[in-house]
Design a protein around this nucleic acid. Sequence first.
DNA 1: CCCTGATTCGC
DNA 2: GCGAATCAGG
Length: 197
Amino acid sequence: MSWTEERVEILKKMWADGQSASQIAKELGGVTRNAVIGKVHRLGLSNRNTGAAPAKPAEPVAKPAPAAEKPAGPAAAAKPAPQPAAAPAAAAPASPAPKPALPARKAIIPAGQPLPPQPSANEISPEALASQREVEKKARKLTLMELTERTCKWPIGDPATEDFWFCGLPVEQGKPYCEAHVGVAFQPMSSRRDRKR
DNA sequence: CCCTGATTCGC
DNA sequence: GCGAATCAGG
């Protein structure tokens, strides 16, 4: 494979888009992430800075920079709720559910006021609930940043507090969740129907 | 262990 | 120019 104009265009676009080198490599095919990174450098766009902010040679001497830049307002401290990894229990067997697909790091997280849809206990079967508790004890407790394509993206806890993490166990092949959580996420409609609260 | 980008250097 | 190997880091 060679760097045809077309492929370079894809590379540029994806890189500018914040995609990782490995993702780009995967997309292009026939190249490794190393190749992508190498090309990126040769193209001179290693710095993900846009055209703006051209020269930044490293300042020789400290520059006071008086402007105490404070975003101001207490609201600035508000931490955005993490993009819901999914709305788990909402999948029908026939439709495997749209992959929650964590937005490739660039995506803007819409500072959610409303909490992400958490699976409520009364919506899942008792058996599944039991196994869920079981799994939560073994969870790797990953943060949003630590999730990858092969870690379970099941949210545990309250996103509004520090007691929040993702399962993180190895996912079932091709699924967004580990074995146990696939079980609670992909339930037949019949077993969900009219579950009493 | 999974992943990230950065750099080097023989080709 | 290319990219594997390696490095440095999370």
